[in-house]
């Protein structure tokens, strides 16, 4: 029917969507701020239970994946399809590694009996219950976004392969990149708020 292409419009639309995501996580940060202000000491002690090394590794690799995602756009703009696909491949790989790390991290917590609603947790006092509730909920919602990101990158990579996304029409790739940077942005704040409480 009506065919028109408006890359600026598509990008504006993606940014508006990113705003909704920012406020969605933003409200979780409000919840976090409220409960941390109520139980500062308990949050600090509970934060020490988290694995700083694993958290730092995940931060670093997520930053690297942000770079490869950004580079894949440069590659397609320069017409380098092969490099673009390789960079997308690396991004997807890193996203999977992030999830694997997360799996082991959560697994270790579950083994100690630290999971929402567990009887062990309930004995540890309000601050600890809320800290781990927030930890699982916020990193869980974040991980869900990583999974969606992986799906988007696979779709985009296929489109690049089929030349549906190419040098002069790459707004899908750009928007997926924007989404991925958003996921990174959220993690930039989650990391110090959970792993580095002092």
């Amino acid at each position: 029917m009506i065919e028109h292409r408006d890359d600026q419009g598509a990008k504006l639309g993606m940014w508006l969507f990113i705003f909704t995501e920012l406020l969605l996580f933003g409200m979780l940060f409000v919840v976090y701020a409220v409960y941390r202000s109520m139980h500062p000491e308990a949050f600090r002690i509970a934060g020490e239970e988290l694995d700083v090394t694993l958290g730092t590794i995940n931060t670093v690799i997520l930053l690297i994946s942000s770079m490869t995602a950004a580079m894949s756009i440069t590659a397609i703009q320069k017409g380098n399809k092969k490099l673009c696909l390789q960079l997308l491949g690396i991004t997807i790989l890193i996203a999977v590694i992030f999830l694997v790390n997360k799996y082991f991290e959560w697994g270790a917590k579950f083994e100690y009996g630290f999971y929402p609603g567990s009887p062990e947790l309930h004995e540890l006092g309000y601050g600890t219950i809320l800290f781990f509730g927030l930890y699982f909920f916020m990193t869980g919602v974040h991980a869900l976004h990583i999974i969606i990101g992986i799906g988007l990158f696979i779709y985009v990579a296929l489109q690049v392969k089929k030349d549906k996304i190419h040098q002069t029409d790459h707004v899908w790739l750009e928007n997926t990149g924007l989404y991925w940077h958003l996921v990174d942005l959220i993690w930039i704040f989650l990391f110090p708020l959970f792993y580095l409480i002092h």
Binding site: V31, Y35, M38, H39, G117, Y126, G127, L130, L134, F137
Partner: peptide, 16 residues
């Protein structure tokens, strides 16, 4: 899951 965000019995604040 019974996380307890808004449950006073688990430290949560219903007013939040």
């Amino acid at each position: 899951l019974g996380i307890g965000f808004f449950d006073p019995a688990l430290g949560g604040d219903p007013i939040l």
